[in-house]
Write a protein that binds this DNA or RNA. Structure first.
Lengths: 224, 224
DNA sequence: GCGCACATACCAACCGGTCGGTATGTTGGC
DNA sequence: GCCAACATACCGACCGGTTGGTATGTGCGC
């Protein structure tokens, strides 16, 4: 609306519809198995429109990964777990949210970047890099909280905040793979439960927060 | 050799060469991106030979998953970690072996089943099932040791041996995905280090083994 | 001399990508 | 206020090449 012309708005809409449809089809079938023809048909646009907006199928892959990152980062940015006082509670809140997201159908909770990168890894370096940036960028949103939780407890762990953040993503990606292989969302949930247990274990070793506020019950959960 | 006719031997060789080549190409490129023509050319056989041994490309996928399972199960069956006295040492020995395997190139340590199932999940149920059986079957080889470690400590954990066995596979599969996405084997090794720490934590909580033998130093490692 | 293990030639369908054309704005000169 | 000149967004027929799969021929061990 505002000041955009109608043609611009329509073009953006076509592009977005293409990207959203690509997200769906690639998550379902993989990148290679999603043909440009199929994608266009599913999005209700012609091939001409597709190649007007994207230089190649590979570039669609790159932009789809970015579009996916945009969507997910918006979703997690507004999540409630950021409000917790104790940084550990924020981390556990993140894990609890991921765990809750595994209660739907498999096709709905899997990760575009993780699915696509396995195929794109050797064949489409630009796509691989975009997927790497998506996953790495998402992991990065956890690092500050992990560092804060370490600092609050005066810990000096053998592991880095960065490596733990990436480990959470590895567990999630692996949970998706197992869910698909065993056709079971339950197995993915179990794995995230193990992850939660691990994080509690890491931060439980050096007891409770040292001083100041007296209202933190160490672990406050409000789901299930 | 022994009593097999030379034609039988040759046929088995052609078939095996096709399967071995499929393992390599599919791990590198994915299933959809590996064409039958490419596969035949790489294996040095003709298309006629391919369709003599496999009814379809999908069936090749199924048999490739089984062939992969055969190879890996043989590899792990003869590994040294089975010899450890304490079941926990056997589990940690397995994890240490997996961790050591991550020291090569990415293309050499990734898992055929995990790579293929992401594509095959919705499109080729027979392949998905074969991959599920491969991963599930491999996880199963850990269950007895985990149960023994639980029993030896008189534990009654909130988690099942089965779920921990599957969790190890989730971490490994996720480590492969991250290694590909970030083009870094180190990130995969870090994740397996976290897994090892988690397992030690799970079994450390309820102290040392209760009685009997007095020679077990709780954790014996012989690598690095 | 028969059948198994291939080899060769071939097929229709589909692939990613191109290209000439058009419908619909948008803009600047007057 | 209008129109010529241009830009954007899209259309869909078409291209060469590749796909999974097949039909038929051939050599060779038993």
């Amino acid at each position: 609306m505002s000041k955009a012309s109608s043609s611009e708005a329509k073009a953006a809409d076509t592009r977005t519809r293409l990207l959203d449809t690509a997200l769906r089809l690639v998550r379902e079938r993989g990148f290679a198995a999603t043909s440009v023809n199929d994608l266009c048909a599913a999005a209700g646009v012609t091939k001409g429109a597709f190649y007007h907006h994207f230089a190649s199928k590979e570039q669609l892959g790159v932009e789809a990964a970015r579009h996916w990152a945009d969507g997910t980062s918006a979703l997690f940015a507004q999540a409630a777990y950021h409000a917790a006082e104790d940084p550990l509670d924020r981390i556990l809140g993140y894990v609890a949210l991921r765990r809750r997201m595994l209660e739907g159908e498999i096709a709905e909770f899997t990760c575009l970047a993780g699915t696509m990168v396995q195929e794109a890894y050797a064949q489409h370096p630009p796509i691989r890099d975009a997927c790497g940036a998506t996953i790495g960028g998402h992991a990065q949103t956890l690092v500050a909280d992990i560092e804060a939780a370490i600092a609050a407890r005066g810990m000096a762990p053998a592991w880095s905040a960065q490596s733990l953040a990436l480990h959470t993503q590895a567990v999630l990606q692996g949970a998706f793979v197992l869910a698909k292989a065993l056709d079971s969302a339950a197995v993915a949930r179990d794995s995230v439960d193990h992850l939660e247990r691990y994080i509690r274990c890491l931060f439980a070793a050096d007891a409770a927060p040292p001083a100041a506020s007296a209202d933190a019950p160490a672990t406050s959960e409000d789901e299930r």
